[in-house]
Write a protein that binds this DNA or RNA. Structure first.
Lengths: 258, 258
DNA sequence: GTGGCCCGTTCCACGATGTGGAACACTGAC
DNA sequence: GTCAGTGTTCCACATCGTGGAACGGGCCAC
């Protein structure tokens, strides 16, 4: 490894990528990777364990070969120009806001929080403030609930084993009740939140999947509880949000571009 | 981060992937990534620098946003089932061997060496032995020369700045002459080696590109110098090898599968 | 023009983390 | 059963990654 950079680099990261590059040629075992990279077997084994944890690598059979994992495909979907999440979702959010009259946002799961990547605001005088760049605990918002509902079982188990903060009297902070709710969310494909994060704030969220079929983001529409959802309109609103999410999903997988 | 693994993982690698996942949502700057990952800006900057070095990340503008780099696309081409290099190349190598009667191999650049991933052997009594799983310094074989010729300028500069071993009287171990030779190789799209690694061993190599257009491997055909290439046959043999390499290239990009 | 705020980059003392040799468990061939 | 190969795990230790702080640059308001 010839490092001509004036600034030092992180050796462990370089080594991990050396391992990944080996796997880029096809499945390989610990010994072959060790031979090719010049690293000790124990180091390779530990790096592979880390990469498996991250889903960047998958173990093809126990005590056997490793191959590249789903995360690489996930990331590559975004590395393709024109296919990044924020840019793809933006026009769809704009249409949704025009259709429903309320603000719409885009969020991703980040640790125990939803991180809001983008938001398109309605033009009413009373509206939900912009959350772009902010984070909220995942269990108190519709985007977060959707992301939890479709998260891998290990992620969800960890989340439910951690602290659940109550923000209002409506917050569901009991892990058993929350887990049941996530079951329902998975079945319905969307979820409504009624004043669980903040008094007077309602929202509905639906999942966005990438080209591998993994839920990687969620959109939500939120408004003041005194008018959102309008009486009898919650099913239609939810359907519009699910439809918008599905459109983003299809754009991410490239089907609508052909 | 909830690590339920009995064995520890490599924190630096996890952090690097946390950064990559942020960029999976769209371009972002150091401060945003720092906010989202909870890491200090200096750590994020250094990780990004490392990832840029590795081509996993690209800096979209100086003092600005970063995005995912080509390496992710490179890797994803192999993560897609049925698209790994060795499996894709194998049948083409078999046809080539049947056509030319000599052994054909597949190699990748690995440090200063070619690493031979696969080889299909001819059925003659006198043949070149199998090099699968072995490595040879890149400048003494046709596969290695092709890989050097099409390597990024920084990789080539480093290589030429390092020691060049002579194996035979024919070996070109002078960096200036070698560099000229690589120019010619780039123009021709293939290269012949005559007894430069071992007396009595000739070979011809051509590059394989992935779907991003990067040269990621090379194939070579090698035989005993007393019969390979046959008199007046070098151009036809080279053309067959280039044609086979191009077929592999097209299969890797998925065009022939449609 | 100046100052404040933001951005990303670089430095360096130090301790936290990654290391790699060795032991271990498993598998398959003879 | 033995041996040679595989991949996994452990742990003392030293090397490497860290993060606060300084820095330079750009932008905007006054």
């Amino acid at each position: 490894m010839w490092n001509t950079d004036p600034m030092s680099t992180v050796q462990s990261v370089e080594r991990a990528f050396a391992v990944l590059r080996c796997l880029g040629s096809g499945p390989a075992g610990v010994s072959e990777i060790a031979e090719r990279t010049g690293l000790p077997k124990s180091t390779v084994s530990r790096l592979l364990g880390t990469l498996v944890d991250l889903d960047a690598v998958t173990q093809l059979d126990p005590n056997g070969a490793y191959g590249l994992g789903e995360l690489i495909l996930d990331l590559s979907a975004s590395a393709t120009p024109g296919r990044n999440l924020v840019g793809t979702a933006r026009p769809v959010l704009e249409q949704l806001v025009e259709q429903l009259g309320e603000s719409a946002g885009l969020g991703v799961l980040d640790g125990r929080d939803v991180y809001y990547l983008d938001q398109v605001n309605g033009d009413r005088e009373v509206q939900v403030r912009d959350w772009t760049g902010e984070r909220v605990e995942a269990h108190v918002g519709s985007a977060g609930l959707v992301l939890l509902a479709f998260a891998p079982a290990s992620v969800l188990a960890r989340f439910l084993g951690g602290p659940l903060t109550s923000f209002t009297e409506q917050t569901i902070a009991d892990p058993v009740r929350l887990n049941q709710r996530l079951d329902e969310t998975r079945r319905a494909g969307f979820v409504w939140c009624f004043e669980e994060y903040s008094e007077g704030l309602n929202s509905v969220g639906a999942p966005i999947s990438n080209s591998s079929g993994r839920v990687v983001a969620a959109i939500s529409v939120h408004g003041p509880s005194y008018r959102f959802p309008a009486n009898g309109a919650s099913a239609a609103v939810a359907a519009a949000v699910v439809d918008a999410a599905n459109r983003i999903t299809e754009r991410l997988s490239g089907r609508l571009d052909h």
